[in-house]
């Protein structure tokens, strides 16, 4: 067991360092430590499952050790900027004031094709329209367009708008969710009124109904199986 714990800690640290060295492109949406845990846990768990001759503890001990490492490292990342920088790295500015920083791209092994792909995903087809592009620590690219290319907001147009409220699911597959009804401050009577207004005799006829605090509702009828 002690050997198992030591080996797990060594492999965990080695993999975190490897992920950091490999760079942001490899990570997708996970931080390096999360990625390592996700990769290792699935493999460790499979071993005692597939082989009945291996004690379950051979899977349990490394998993508990990994969770400990992950929680402690996350705690360190939360509390210390130095640890955060060492473990997760720092965001890299790829485009600054419309200029592509080629050295930064080389340092992150970020190709032109990848940059263009990420920009397209953000709806920025023209590189010239991007003021800043930042490669985040999780490998995603944040794109900030020039103000002149940004969509116009109601504030810029001096248009008054009501604030949006979060709609809650009141009926899910014919079942009324009481907690959601209370959450938007309405009662059963109000719900029944809304149902009959929209041509439903009963909640069972509704596939999904959502509503917000202002009473804005959305209905979808249940289709026969």
């Amino acid at each position: 067991m002690v050997i198992s714990i030591c080996r797990t800690i060594i492999i965990y640290l080695l993999m975190v360092v490897s992920m950091r060295v490999m760079g942001k492109r490899q990570l997708g949406e996970l931080e390096p430590t999360e990625f390592v845990v996700a990769v290792l846990i699935s493999d460790i768990a499979a071993n005692p499952l597939a082989d009945p001759g291996t004690p379950l503890l051979y899977g349990v001990v490394p998993i508990i050790t990994l969770i400990f490492c992950e929680v402690m490292l996350s705690f360190g990342v939360l509390k210390s900027r130095k640890i955060r920088s060492a473990v997760s790295g720092n965001p890299s500015v790829i485009i600054e004031n419309g200029k592509i920083l080629q050295n930064e791209m080389r340092r992150n092994r970020f190709t032109i094709d990848e940059l263009i792909e990420h920009l397209r995903k953000h709806g920025a087809c023209d590189v010239g329209g991007v003021k800043y592009a930042v490669l985040e620590t999780d490998g995603s690219l944040s794109v900030i367009p020039y103000a002149a290319r940004s969509p116009v907001t109601p504030l810029q147009m001096n248009i008054e708008t009501g604030e949006a409220e979060i709609p809650l699911v009141l009926i899910s597959d014919g079942e009324v969710i009481r907690e959601s009804l209370l959450g938007i401050g309405k009662d059963r009577e109000w719900l029944e009124g809304k149902l009959s207004e929209n041509g439903f005799g009963d909640a069972k006829e509704v596939f999904i109904m959502t509503a917000d605090c202002l009473g804005n509702c959305f209905f979808a009828a249940r289709e026969p199986a």
């Binding site: 067991m1 001990v61 508990i64 929680v71 402690m72 705690f75």
Partner: peptide, 22 residues
């Protein structure tokens, strides 16, 4: 709370591991 709970479980694991070595 999570950090304390995980540390306690890990300390127990270390204790059991040492007992096992013995």
């Amino acid at each position: 709370k999570k950090e304390i709970a995980v540390s306690a479980v890990f300390a127990l694991l270390i204790f059991l591991a040492v007992m096992n070595v013995r």
